[in-house]
Design a protein around this nucleic acid. Structure first.
Lengths: 218, 218
DNA sequence: CCAATAAGTAACATCACGCAACTAATGTCA
DNA sequence: TGACATTAGTTGCGTGATGTTACTTATTGG
């Protein structure tokens, strides 16, 4: 009911790296029954890989992934299902999703002992998220439907791996017409309450920005 | 000697979408022996997918791909090798690479009749290139080792699908320290000769630019 | 010699960004 | 109750990047 669904050798496996932000760190859902592993399933000839991955996510976390993308196919190293080829899917859910029985969230920086191929897939999840976060609302899918701008900034800082400036972040966000304020505020203990926002992208007049040379270094 | 190497069913195929810019348009290398198809090979349990793809590229075009990335795994529709799963690799070579016997360059916008799964893989190649061009020197690998800035701009315009401004393009390029001028100039018939440049990225002081909200539209 | 063509540059206005300082609203503690 | 800490949110300014226009330079072809 947890990880392996079928271990027939000779077929590719679909592996799920389900991610969530908990306590300011990126976590991955790992099965804890017997050996620890990422959820995976055999992909039959009739199966659609993404459909299998979405079913895995629904089954493993109790709800569908809020966003999902394919990672880099791996063939090297050992896989718990002895699959010759593994197709990883990186999924994303909000921070309030609790791990069901037999599952647990683990920080990516402190993973339990996984089969080496699955360990490699989990460690490359952040790279996959970074690859897509400019073109897909990955950060918003890692948040609840309503969130504060500080929470959004923290997710972006986590994904980018560096600190951002508050004022600049908010100005850029406002210029992009991506969020809409709600009427609610949240008091998080000490400090001024924060206004809650919702992801509500509006049509913008074709932001034709220049080329990105700044990420090319080799 | 061209497309299929082994058609044993039950194993994944590695498919090659080799791209080049010819005459201002993106072209894909297609085999012309018997049925037209993308080069592909069966991927055995011991094979490294990327190594297989690189060998395919070397074999199909006569030289190694200048850059390569994995595309989206596909299982739907018909594949010429009847592979249940296909792992596409998008490769890139310079514009001077001629198609060997049994192969031909075709514009992606006017592909010949391919098996539907391969057709889908070829048509998603541009998306894969766009996904990586900010972090990898894809545009430079589509050019010869020396090139004019106008040629470079044309490649970027092709990849981005929109026109760029000459002055802005060159300023941004200079600020990124990505190219170095050579002592040669090229006279292309009419007009002033263009100086030739080389891709020579130099270490830059961490261009920590802001977040890209401008590509998120939904 | 002049028009056409393409490469390359300069000048200027505008915009985005980094930075710092500020205000606002809440809880804590003496 | 009043000072302080803490977090949210805003404002202003200097600097640098970008968009736009116009200009200069070098070559081919009448």
């Amino acid at each position: 009911m947890s990880a392996a669904k079928s271990r027939r050798s000779g077929a590719a496996s679909i592996d799920l790296v389900l991610c969530a932000v908990r306590g300011g760190r990126l976590h991955v859902l790992v099965t804890t029954t017997s050996a620890q592993a990422l959820p995976f399933a055999r992909c039959g000839a009739e199966d659609d890989p993404e459909a299998v991955a979405r079913e895995l996510a629904r089954h493993a976390s109790g709800q569908p992934a809020a966003w999902m993308a394919q990672g880099t196919v791996m063939a090297a190293k050992r896989h718990p299902g002895d699959a010759p080829l593994s197709v990883p899917f990186v999924g994303v859910v909000g921070p309030a999703v609790e791990a069901p029985r037999g599952m647990a969230w683990h920080p990516v920086q402190a993973l339990p002992s996984l089969a080496p191929r699955q360990k490699a897939m989990a460690e490359s999840a952040l790279t996959t998220l970074r690859l897509h976060m400019d073109a897909a609302p990955v950060a918003f899918r890692l948040l609840p439907s309503v969130f504060t701008l500080s929470e959004l900034q923290q997710v972006y800082e986590l994904l980018l791996g560096r600190r951002l400036h508050k004022a600049s972040f908010r100005r850029a966000l406002q210029a992009a017409y991506l969020v809409a304020p709600t009427d609610d505020w949240r008091s998080e203990g000490r400090g001024r309450p924060a206004q809650l926002f919702r992801y509500a992208p509006r049509r913008r007049h074709a932001g034709h920005r220049s080329v990105r040379f700044d990420l090319l270094g080799r």
